[in-house]
Structures are given as C-alpha cells and as structure tokens.
C-alpha cells in the first residue's frame, strides 16, 4: 500500500494531517503499536519540516508487512550541513515559528531515533529528500 500527500510550506492549518492519515492507515492494517508510534513521529516531523522550511513537498508512506517507509521530498532551501542539522538543538527556524513550539532542533534527531534506516540527501536552494525505514516490530524486540 502506498499513500502520498501534498504538503504546502507555511500551511500550519493543515500541518499534521498527512501524519494523522498515515497513522490511521497503519492502525487499520494492523501494524504493531510500537511501529505505528515510530512511523507517526517520523511522518509528523518530516511533514513539519516541509511546512516550516520548504516551499512545497510530498510526504509518501509505503506500507509493507514487515516495514513502513516514509519518504519526504521537498522543493526548498536544502540543508547545507546535514551533520549539523542532525544535532539536537540546532535549528534554522525563525523566532515566530519557535514561539509556536516548533523549530526546537528536535525534528531530524527524532526522525533518526525512530528510524531503523535513514537516508538524507539535500541540495542547497533545490530541496531535500528524506527516506526513513521503520521495521514492523513490537516494543523491546
């Protein structure tokens, strides 16, 4: 099963809708609770990264019996230094975004922590491609 959602930059009114739909679908197909939780965190953070930083993008979930793959592809500023962006607390979000409780520099670290495999490719002034794989497993396995 594959689900794809268009995500608009700066559209905070719809932020989280794609992640919510992915969550419902994963629950419907009977994925493990722990898998759903991790996939939801990855999907939400990836969706919000598009909303906060990019002009537009797509969020795609590929669902297989043994894993979930979350893919975020955006047109935006790109990430000049991915290693730096992976550090918790590092953020380029402007003050008005931080005042809403976003942009704390936890997005990519959260994605990393919840992914079994993670690949990030980015080109400055073009966009970013994030691909996360989450294996379907119960907590503690």
């Amino acid at each position: 099963m594959q689900m794809q959602f268009e995500v608009q930059g700066m559209d905070f009114n719809r932020a989280g809708e794609a992640a919510a739909k992915i969550k419902k679908a994963l629950q419907m197909v009977g994925m493990e609770v722990h898998t759903v939780r991790r996939a939801v965190i990855v999907a939400y953070e990836a969706e919000l990264n598009i909303v906060i930083h990019a002009r537009r993008g797509t969020l795609t979930a590929h669902v297989y019996p043994d894993r979930v793959e979350i893919e975020a592809l955006d047109e935006g500023p790109g990430i000049p230094d991915i290693t730096l962006a992976m550090q918790e607390g590092y953020s380029t979000a402007p003050p008005h975004i931080r005042e809403m409780g976003f942009g704390a520099g936890m997005g990519l670290p959260n994605i990393n922590r919840c992914s079994d495999k993670l690949q990030i490719d980015s080109a400055v002034n073009k966009g970013t491609h994030v691909k996360s794989i989450i294996f379907n497993q119960a907590s503690g396995e």
Binding site: N13, A15, I41, Y44, E45, G101, F102, A104, M106
Partner: peptide, 28 residues
C-alpha cells in the same frame, strides 16, 4: 511547550499541560 518533545516523550493517555493555544497542539 516544545511540540517535538511532547510527540517523542509523552505517553498515550497522558494529560498534556502547555502554554500553547494554537490548533497544532490538537494534532500532536
């Protein structure tokens, strides 16, 4: 009051205490 922190560390069934009032808190 950091949405990513709540998303990552709050547990199902928790009552969330926050200063935020915008709609994104409901999504989280």
């Amino acid at each position: 009051d950091l949405l990513s922190d709540v998303l990552a560390h709050a547990s199902p069934g928790d009552l969330w205490i926050t200063i935020h009032r915008h709609r994104n808190i409901v999504a989280v």
